[in-house]
Computed example of a mutant assay.
Amino acid sequence: MDAKDSAPEVRNLKQLLQYQDKAVVSRMLVKNSAGSVTLFAFDGNEGLSEHTAPYDALVVGVEGRAEVPIGGVTHLVGEGDSLLMPANITHAIKPLGGFKMLLVMIKGEVK
């Protein structure tokens, strides 16, 4: 969804997406040539396995907590926290119970 395709609207990220049993649920909020913004809700036993991405990604904790290993170093992300995951470095998302996060994918170099 491009921002130009919808009227401005205040949204509560905690309420915008609900947990589903044994699932990872996502909702794309913005997608354009510069990148994307996606909201995720992870059931307590679900996560994202170790992988790399070709772009920098910013994780913003919305609800709950998760361990986010990046290049072998584990970081704890909670509500209101942010963490930059650099491009081409292995990372994963390991929720500690239900966890909601906003993922901002940024195409190009972050300076």
Rank of each mutant, 00 (worst) to 15 (best):
M1G: 11
M1P: 09
D2E: 15
D2G: 11
D2I: 03
K4Q: 11
D5S: 10
S6R: 04
S6W: 03
A7D: 01
P8N: 05
P8M: 03
E9R: 07
E9I: 00
E9A: 07
V10L: 15
R11C: 07
N12Q: 10
L13E: 08
L13F: 09
L13V: 10
K14F: 01
Q15I: 00
L16A: 06
L16C: 01
Y19T: 00
Y19F: 14
Q20W: 00
K22R: 11
K22F: 09
K22Y: 10
K22E: 11
K22C: 05
V24A: 05
V25C: 04
S26R: 10
S26C: 03
R27P: 01
M28H: 04
V30D: 01
V30L: 08
N32A: 05
S33V: 13
A34S: 13
A34Q: 13
G35W: 04
S36G: 00
S36M: 01
V37I: 15
T38L: 12
T38H: 10
T38Y: 07
T38D: 10
L39N: 06
L39M: 07
N45V: 07
E46C: 13
E46R: 14
E46W: 06
G47A: 10
G47T: 12
L48R: 03
H51R: 00
T52C: 15
T52E: 14
A53E: 12
A53T: 12
A53L: 14
A53H: 13
P54A: 12
P54E: 15
P54W: 13
Y55S: 12
A57D: 03
L58Q: 06
L58N: 05
V60C: 04
G61D: 03
G61V: 00
V62S: 06
E63C: 01
G64V: 09
E67F: 08
V68I: 15
V68M: 14
P69M: 09
P69N: 08
P69E: 10
I70L: 10
I70C: 09
I70Y: 09
G71E: 06
G71K: 03
G72E: 09
V73A: 14
V73H: 15
V77Q: 00
E79Q: 03
S82A: 09
L83W: 05
L83G: 03
L84A: 12
M85W: 04
P86N: 14
N88Q: 11
N88W: 02
I89S: 05
I89H: 08
A92V: 08
I93A: 02
I93V: 14
I93S: 02
K94G: 03
K94V: 13
K94F: 09
P95H: 02
P95E: 03
L96V: 07
G98M: 08
G98E: 13
F99H: 03
M101K: 06
L102G: 01
L102V: 07
V104I: 14
M105G: 04
I106K: 12
G108R: 13
V110F: 12
K111R: 15
K111Q: 13
